[in-house]
Amino acid sequence: MGPLSGVRVLELGSFIAGPFAGQLLADYGAEVIKIEPPRTGDPMRRWGITKDGESLWWPAIARNKKSVTVDLRGERGQRLVRDLVSNCDVVLENFRPGTMARWGLSYESLRAVNPGVVVVHVSGFGQTGPSAGHAGFGSVAEAVGGIRYTTGSPDDTPARSGISLGDSLAALFAVIGTLAALAERGRGGEGQEVDVAIYEAVFALMESMLADFHVGGVMRTRSGSVLPGVAPSNVYPTADDAEVVIAANADSVFTRLVEAMGRPELAADPRYATHQARGEAMAELDGLIADWTSTRKSGDLVGLLQEHGVPVGMINTAATILHDAHFAARDMILWRRNGNGTELPMNGIVPKFSRTPGEIDRTGPRLGADTDTVLTTLAGVDDAELATLRADGVI
């Protein structure tokens, strides 16, 4: 009974950007019906690290969803989807622009059967503009949107994060757009289109990059583990070969840090007394702090700095997160069994709701697990037609 209980979403598409948005909506209680190609399904079923032939990501990215197999490339399958749309609040798709229209599933055709439907498009470059028709995976959108140029070491080529950042950002904006459109529909009763471009989702995070260059004459670029002029805020070593991030660039926080270090005089030292001075002396200051942190074990160091009110955190890995008491206390590691019976941990639900918390009722379903039920209850298909559709490969 999450906050989106009663909202029905038809998810079309594959891989990450669209399906991750569908996962989040399902986390919040929406009924998410995932349409997959018969026989093959979403490639995410076999993507990444696998066990017993199933992706270890699939149980999470498809959790709480219903799987319905429909061949979208044929007229009969397209008619089934239009029939389903008449009973849905949201259609979420991440095909290349123009694909839905070629299949007779344009916004206009869907609106004709359901004027209140919200159609959410997720694509590399958006539904309009000179690049709209180009293929665009999240990695390319990260480059175009500007984040790759600012990621990594200044002495190396642009780096990427070890996750599908662009796709995930687009999914977040898709959820935001969906919720905003549903809120507006609640006032007027009419749906609309929501156009999410992955490169724009990336670009939205780029802060004052354009103004810094155009007005300030500064090209923001790769700076490794620091931000130029912001110190101390870096990664520091510990005596037990771990690493911690300490962020003490504000005057008051820096004072608390040097008190924890047993060097309170540094707060009044002209070389470090102001934000600007610390930025100019970044390398020297980071050296002083690293010399100190490297003499202490990570747990003791984190505890000491927390006692002094200094923002600090471990550089966590999967191994350390699995044993982190705070993650566990906030239900951020959820243990569930996949379709093969393997118990596995998955990321918890974000954010937390005080009255209508989300829940994981099921992990990613087997292909077509809900085809018959959904098509009979929402598209008016009887048993005889189901048999014919299955025999003809439509479902």
Score class of each variant (00 low, 15 high):
2 G>S: 04
6 G>A: 10
9 V>P: 01
10 L>G: 02
18 G>V: 03
19 P>W: 09
25 L>I: 02
27 D>A: 12
33 I>W: 14
39 R>Y: 13
41 G>H: 09
48 G>E: 06
50 T>P: 01
57 W>T: 09
60 A>S: 15
60 A>R: 10
66 K>R: 15
77 G>H: 03
82 R>D: 00
85 V>E: 00
94 N>R: 12
106 S>A: 13
116 G>C: 02
124 G>F: 05
126 G>N: 09
132 A>P: 01
132 A>Y: 13
141 A>T: 11
142 E>W: 11
146 G>K: 11
147 I>P: 03
148 R>M: 15
150 T>C: 15
150 T>I: 14
150 T>H: 05
153 S>R: 14
158 P>M: 15
159 A>W: 05
160 R>M: 09
163 I>E: 06
168 S>H: 13
168 S>G: 07
168 S>R: 03
174 A>R: 06
175 V>R: 06
180 A>Q: 14
181 A>G: 03
183 A>Y: 12
186 G>V: 15
193 E>R: 13
199 Y>A: 05
206 M>C: 09
209 M>N: 06
216 G>C: 08
220 R>H: 14
238 T>L: 00
244 V>Q: 02
246 I>W: 10
255 T>N: 08
256 R>C: 04
259 E>K: 09
262 G>Q: 05
271 R>V: 05
272 Y>F: 15
273 A>T: 04
275 H>A: 14
277 A>W: 08
278 R>M: 03
283 A>D: 04
284 E>F: 10
286 D>P: 01
288 L>M: 14
293 T>P: 00
295 T>H: 03
311 P>A: 08
312 V>L: 10
321 I>E: 12
329 A>F: 09
330 R>D: 01
333 I>K: 08
336 R>D: 02
340 N>G: 15
357 P>G: 06
358 G>P: 01
361 D>I: 12
364 G>K: 11
377 T>K: 05
379 A>V: 04
383 D>P: 03
393 G>Q: 02
395 I>E: 02
395 I>Y: 09
